[in-house]
Design a protein around this nucleic acid. Sequence first.
DNA 1: GTCTATAATTTGATAGAC
DNA 2: GTCTATCAAATTATAGAC
Lengths: 221, 221
Amino acid sequence: MTSRFEPMSLTRPGVSDKGNQQILEAAAEAFNRRGFAATSIDDIADALGATKGRIYHYYRSKLDIFLDVLVASMRDLLEKLQPILTDSERSPEQRLYDAAYMHATTMMTRRSFSRVAIQGLEAPVLAEAQTKRADAVNLFIGLRDRYEDGFADLVEQGRASGVFRDVDPRLATKPIFGALNWINMWYDPAQESQAGVAAIAEEFAVFIVNGLRRREPVPGP
Amino acid sequence: MTSRFEPMSLTRPGVSDKGNQQILEAAAEAFNRRGFAATSIDDIADALGATKGRIYHYYRSKLDIFLDVLVASMRDLLEKLQPILTDSERSPEQRLYDAAYMHATTMMTRRSFSRVAIQGLEAPVLAEAQTKRADAVNLFIGLRDRYEDGFADLVEQGRASGVFRDVDPRLATKPIFGALNWINMWYDPAQESQAGVAAIAEEFAVFIVNGLRRREPVPGP
DNA sequence: GTCTATAATTTGATAGAC
DNA sequence: GTCTATCAAATTATAGAC
C-alpha cells in the first residue's frame, strides 16, 4: 500500500496533467454549485464547452473526480497551515489567529474547492465513498486529521501557557471550524453590501481567539 | 396571498394529519442521511415500511416534502427562541447564552429536522426551489430571517450596554450560527467518547458569548 | 484526445386495482 | 388509504468512429 500522504492519482493512467487540471477546476465549480449528487457529468462537460467523452477520458467515475477535488483542496489548506504552525516568532494565540485568518480567507478566495471539501466532510457522503474507494477516502481523512491536529495543538499550547481557558482542545476545535467553514454558506463575492475579505477574516479570527481566551489576566509568579 | 407566517399546507388537500406527520418524520430522517438530491421517494417509503403510493397520496412532489420539513424545523426553533428573547430578568449577554445553548441542544436532540433545515439554507437548493414553489420558500426565508434577527438584536443590545465588542451585529451573527449549525456535522449520539449534550451546549454558549465580549471591563461612571 | 451513439439503471410521478 | 404496474425522463458509463 502507498504511504498515506503520497501523491495518489485518481485519474486514468497516462493522461495529461493539463487537461486533468481543467476538468478538476470545472468539476469543483459544478460540485460547488449543486452538490455532488445533483451534479451530472454533463454539467461538468457543459462548463468546459465539451461533452462527457472528454471527462471519461480522464476519470473513471464521477466519484473519482469528486475525491480528487477533495484531496486537492485539503492539500492546499495543509500546505498553507504548515508555515504558520512552525513560526517560532509568534505566540500560540497569535498563531491560532493566523491560522483562522488563513482558513477564513481561503474559504472566500477559493470558494469552489473549499466548499467541495466541506461537502466531503459530511459523514453520509464519506461513508458511501468509503465502500467504493477506500484508498482515496483514507488519504483525504488523513490529511483532514493532520489539519485538525494543527489547530488542536495551537489550542493546547495556548491553554498550557495560561492564555486560553481550560478547554478540551478537540472539542474547542469544533466551533472554530464551524464558524470558519460556515463562511462558505453565506459569503457571496458578488454582494457589494458585504464587508471585504480582509475585514471578515479579521473579525472571525478575533472572535475565535477571544472566545478561547481566559477573562481574567493570569496572576504573575 | 396568505400572511407570511400563517400556517401553509404543502400537503395535498384533505389528507389526515397523522399520516402526514409520519411521512414528515421519515422524510426528515432520510433527507438527513443522504441529502435532498440523493434521497429517493423509495428511500422514504422504505423507512416507513411502505411504497411510494402512500407518499404521493400525501404530497405532490419530493420538493414539497422537503420544504415541509424545512418549515416545520424553522418554526420549532423560532418558538423556542421567543421566550428567551423576552425574558426581562436576564441581561442581553445572558439571553444570548440561553439562545446559543438552546440552538446547540436542538442541533443534537432533533438531529434530522435541524440538519435538513440547514441543507435548506444552502443557496443553490433554495434558488432552485424558488422557481418551483416561491410561496413556501418565502415562508421559510421569512421564518429564518426572524430567527436571525433575534440573535442580531441580542448582539446589538450587548454592544449598546458596553459588554460586547464594537461589532456589526449582522456580521457577528455569522460565526455564531456557523459554530452552532456545524454541530450537526460532527455530533454523533452513538459515539460514546464524545461529551454529553449539556457539556457541549455549555462550551459552545460560553465560547460564543466570550468571543463577543470586550476584554477590558467597562469603566464605571 | 474528443465526439457521437447507445446500453443499463435509477427515479419522479401517475393510473388504476383493491 | 395503500399497493402494484408502468411511463417518461435523466443519468452513469461504455464502445467505437474520427
